[in-house]
Design a binder for these strands. Structure first.
Length: 504
DNA sequence: AAGGTTGCCAACCGCTCAGAA
DNA sequence: TTTCTGAGCGGTTGGCAACCT
């Protein structure tokens, strides 16, 4: 709409100012909006001065009039943005203070991506600033598997949202941050491999979330799970400085950086924050710990996606899973899971929670663990590291036990669920893509160990390039021998978990 | 030193909504 | 009631600087 307006107004602007230097500048830059002669790109100080002068004389608002009367070759939107984000006299410059960062986290927990509303709560800060802050520093932590929300904020948000939902789910209040929605958040890539953390004391959430919850809860190596795991390792993931298998990031400088960064940001959370992580399962990015913990105690309505993200397009998103692109956001995965395929309804197998894919995975894996208990345990020799068999997994098991539902939550096998979500090939494991993924960092792989493998655990752990667990080779992560013991325990356990599918 | 990668930030784009005509 | 317009919001992109290899 504004485009139409701009186009008509552009002509006026051109007529009035084509002879002006700014017009020449704009034209020469060739960076004009479609059809018009509005300048785009960085603002010059001269333009800023013009805009400030205009606003001082006429006040804010009526932005489309700015270009008419001020001589600026900028559309109204651009003027408004420039004023709001940079020229406003009440703007607070500089980086966010710890208090502000904490406030942002707090507000995001309450509001979600309501940047403008968050900005209204932070005087002198703009929505763009907050958005950029969140998208870079906070979400980076999320991707790295680091907790975003401190316990108090998390619990507070859960309480508030639970209350609001009891009062009326769609009462129009603040949209609860979907990242607190337990089953909504399947930021799997940041979860299960982070759960392989070597040093629990350093990265307690990892162990708590994943090793304890995801693996120990019974994620057995079904084909679906293998698919799942393979999907969690897009090529770009491996290429990035972020830990490929972040659980091993205890020795990864990139994650150390994250950790340092977060320590600063989280100072305001209190000294107990880090230590609380292991016990405050709600902190997990993507709320995985809640999944592992006591998700069933939460309202089913948590599974409702009240605010769909832009990445909700399942087809494109799923199609990109196997491509070397950033991992799908947990929101997109959420949508995939929660978009109820008709088959789910037709299956007639709904769990009491019917919370979605992850529970389906967990359910099935648990069932498989029961059936394959002997072989798996004998093979792995560990039920994933002892520290992984934490209370959260036990809780989770208890949840399922209490459910007493003999059927898979969605009436689907994990594999089938993923097949449903895989648009193109029908095989959710795009083998060539996966192999390409694996080849990204092959220079770091000890090919001897890959081809010969460590057979001390038998076939299940034989390193084979065709299997995902070959990723767990220590050389892949450059682990020093200091971590050798833990590493081998972890690797063996994971290898056993992962091996079955790919061995077959 | 050079090339590549990553993070940050400013700006743009598309969409929605509310109010006016 | 419908259409148009302005304003705002959230997501995304591109440029640049710092850092890494």
């Amino acid at each position: 709409m504004s485009t139409r307006t701009n186009e008509s107004e552009d002509k006026l602007v051109v007529n009035d100012y084509m002879d002006s230097p700014s017009a020449e500048e704009a034209t020469s830059e060739g960076n004009m909006s479609g059809g018009g002669l509005l300048k785009k790109g960085p603002w010059t100080s001269a333009e800023d001065a013009i805009l400030v002068d205009y606003v001082e004389k006429h006040g804010e608002g009526n932005w489309n009039a700015v270009q008419k009367h001020s001589g600026l070759f900028r559309c109204g939107k651009s003027c408004r943005l420039r004023w709001a984000n940079h020229l406003r006299p009440d703007l607070k410059k500089g980086s966010f203070t710890p208090d502000e960062e904490h406030r942002i986290i707090e507000l995001h927990a309450k509001m979600g991506n309501k940047w403008a509303r968050m900005a209204a709560e932070l005087p002198g800060r703009t929505d763009n600033e907050i958005k950029n802050f969140w998208n870079t520093r906070i979400k980076r932590r999320q991707r790295a598997g680091l907790p975003i929300y401190p316990p108090d904020i998390c619990l507070q948000s859960l309480d508030e949202n639970s209350l609001s939902q009891n009062m009326g789910r769609f009462s129009g209040g603040d949209t609860p941050n979907p990242e607190f929605v337990p089953t909504n958040n399947l930021d799997i890539p940041s979860v299960e491999f982070k759960g392989l953390g070597v040093h629990q004391e350093l990265y307690p959430p990892f162990v708590n979330i994943s090793a304890g919850g995801f693996f120990s809860a019974g994620l057995s190596p079904t084909s679906g799970n293998s698919i799942l795991l393979s999907k969690m390792l897009p090529a770009k993931r491996l290429r990035e400085s972020e830990p490929s298998l972040p659980g091993f990031s205890a020795v990864h400088p990139a994650l150390d950086q994250y950790d340092d960064d977060f320590q600063i940001a989280s100072k305001s959370y209190g000294a107990s924050y880090d230590h609380d992580l292991s016990s405050s399962s709600c902190l997990l990015p993507g709320s995985h710990a809640l999944i592992n913990g006591n998700s069933s105690s939460l309202p089913n309505s948590w599974a409702m996606k009240l605010e769909l993200p832009s990445l909700q397009h399942a087809d494109s998103q799923m199609g990109s899973w196997a491509s070397p692109s950033p991992l799908p956001s947990l929101e997109s995965v959420d949508t995939l899971i929660q978009t109820p395929p008709n088959e789910h309804a037709e299956s007639g197998h709904h769990s009491p929670q019917n919370n979605g894919l992850l529970e389906s995975i967990l359910y099935e894996s648990r069932a498989l663990r029961n059936t394959k208990n002997n072989s798996c345990q004998q093979t792995s020799n560990t039920d994933v590291p002892a520290n992984g068999a934490d209370t959260s997994s036990q809780l989770h098991d208890a949840d399922w036990d209490s459910c007493g539902d003999p059927n898979s939550p969605l009436g689907h096998s994990t594999a089938s669920v993923f097949r449903e979500c895989t648009p193109v090939s029908g095989s959710s494991l795009d083998e060539p893509q996966f192999m390409k993924t694996l080849s990204v960092k092959q220079e770091k792989v000890d090919w001897d160990s890959l081809t010969h493998g460590d057979e001390k655990d038998g076939d299940s752990c034989r390193m084979n390039i065709s299997r995902p667990d070959f990723l767990l080779d220590s050389n892949w992560f450059g682990l020093s021998t200091d971590y050798g013991k833990d590493y081998f325990i972890l690797r063996d356990a994971i290898g056993a978990l992962l091996a079955e599918d790919f061995a077959s």
